[in-house]
């Protein structure tokens, strides 16, 4: 996930959004969705005031899928009430264990 580009004025805001999303925890694995590598991209449209999150799930059948997507919406609506939230669930590239961050792996006890 590459969201920081110093030449873009919204980069700092995007980083804040990413940090906010660390509050969204996968209820089974007990790890936040950023460290799990589920979030692929954060896009902010200042004109229409919409934050778009492109993310995936560990599998299309993930039992917690609805909960995780709902939590992302709850989180952003709560922290950025002036923005609308859109979650774009994507399946390409397919999520794999390689996407888990070092911190995520540490939390899994690896």
């Amino acid at each position: 996930m590459e969201i920081f580009d110093i030449t873009q004025s919204d980069s700092f805001f995007k980083l804040r959004v990413v940090e906010s999303l660390r509050l969204v925890i996968d209820p089974e694995l007990e790890i936040n969705i950023i460290d799990l590598g589920l979030v692929y991209n954060v896009d902010v449209n200042e004109e229409s005031k919409v934050i778009t999150i492109s993310m995936t799930l560990s599998s299309p059948a993930c039992p917690m899928g609805g909960t995780i997507v709902g939590s992302v919406e709850n989180c952003l609506t709560h922290h950025y009430p002036e923005y609308k939230t859109s979650v774009d669930l994507v399946w390409e590239p397919v999520w794999s264990f390689d996407r888990i961050s070092k911190e995520g792996k540490r939390l899994l006890g690896m």
Partner: peptide, 19 residues
């Protein structure tokens, strides 16, 4: 899980909830 979803789904992400 089923109880957690019932009690916390609407709060998860904006408040600290038990897991």
């Amino acid at each position: 899980f089923i109880v957690w979803i019932k009690r916390y789904q609407h709060l998860a992400g904006k408040e600290t909830t038990p897991l």
